[in-house]
C-alpha cells in the first residue's frame, strides 16, 4: 500500500491531516489564519466581557459572566497550543494585541479586520452595561455555536478535536445568556433597553458570518477547512435567534 496521491486531491476528497509535517504550504497559511481569527475573537470576547462581571445584578449572574470570561480565555489557549505546533510563539501571541480595546459604538467597519488583529469585527464594538452585554452574548453566543459546528469538521484533525471539545462549553455560554435575558425581559424598562440592544447587535453579529459568495470560502472548502457557505450559516443563525427573540417578544 505504498501508493499515495497528491495531498490536494486527498483533501478535496475529504481527507484529514494529522500533523504539521503533512500540511502543504498554502493549507498551512489558511489553517493558521483560521486559528488566529478564532484565538483573537475569543481573547477579545473574554477581555470585553470582563468588565461586565462588575455590572452583574446578582451572584448567579456574576458567576455566569466570570465563567464566560474564564472559559473563552481557556478556549483561546487551547487553539493557541495547536498554533504553537506550527512554530507560533504562544507567549508573545497572547499579549501582542490590547484585547480589551474597542472602537467607538458608532464606528462602522462592516466585516473588515483591523490591521493584524484578526478578531471578528463584532468584537471591536464596546458593550454598554449589563443588559447590552447579555443581548450581545445571546446573539453572538448562538453565532459561535453555529460557527463552531462548522469548524468541528475542519480537515486538520488536532484542531477539529479542540473545536469539538469547545462546542458544548460555548453552547452553555449561549444558554447562560438566554437565562439572563429571560430575567431582563421581566421588567418593562429593561425590556425596552434589551430591544434597543438587539437592534444594535443583530446586524453586527450577522456581518460576522462574512460575505456570501466569498472567494476565500472557495479556497477553504478545497482544503476541507470549510464546508457550509457563509450565507447558509447565517440563515441557520437567523432561524435560531429569531425564534428565541420572538419567544421573549424582543424582535
Amino acid at each position: 500500500m505504498s501508493d499515495t496521491m497528491p495531498i490536494e486531491d486527498y483533501l478535496a476528497q475529504g481527507g484529514v491531516l494529522s500533523s504539521p509535517a503533512n500540511v502543504p504550504p498554502r493549507y498551512r497559511g489558511e489553517l493558521l489564519r483560521l486559528m488566529a481569527s478564532f484565538v483573537d475573537s475569543e481573547l477579545a470576547g473574554s477581555a470585553g466581557f470582563a468588565d461586565t462581571i462588575n455590572d452583574a445584578p446578582g451572584i448567579q449572574e456574576r458567576i455566569s459572566a466570570a465563567r464566560i470570561v474564564l472559559e473563552k480565555a481557556d478556549h483561546a489557549g487551547k487553539v493557541l497550543r495547536v498554533m504553537e505546533t506550527f512554530g507560533a510563539d504562544g507567549g508573545l501571541y497572547a499579549v501582542h494585541h490590547p484585547w480589551a480595546e474597542r472602537l467607538s459604538r458608532e464606528a462602522d467597519i462592516g466585516a473588515a479586520r483591523q490591521g493584524g488583529d484578526m478578531r471578528l469585527s463584532v468584537f471591536h464594538y464596546p458593550l454598554e452595561g449589563w443588559v447590552d452585554a447579555v443581548v450581545m452574548n445571546v446573539l453572538m453566543g448562538r453565532a459561535s455555536v453555529v460557527q463552531l459546528k462548522e469548524l468541528s469538521r475542519v480537515s486538520y484533525q488536532p484542531l477539529a478535536e479542540v473545536f469539538r471539545a469547545i462546542l458544548p462549553r460555548e453552547t452553555r455560554h449561549a444558554e447562560l445568556g438566554i437565562a439572563g435575558l429571560v430575567q431582563i425581559v421581566d421588567n418593562e424598562q429593561s425590556r425596552a433597553s434589551a430591544k434597543a440592544s438587539v437592534a444594535y447587535w443583530y446586524p453586527r453579529v450577522a456581518a460576522s458570518f462574512g460575505h456570501s459568495g466569498s472567494a476565500r470560502f472557495e479556497t477553504l472548502s478545497r482544503f476541507g477547512l470549510r464546508h457550509t457557505p457563509n450565507e447558509t450559516l447565517l440563515a441557520d443563525w437567523q432561524a435560531e435567534v429569531d425564534a428565541q427573540l420572538s419567544a421573549l417578544n424582543l424582535n
Partner: peptide
Amino acid sequence: MDAPYACKAGVCSTCRAK
C-alpha cells in the same frame, strides 16, 4: 493578492513564504 496573514508581528507564522 489575498496573501495569508494574521498577527503582522512576526509571531504566528501564518504569512510564511519562501
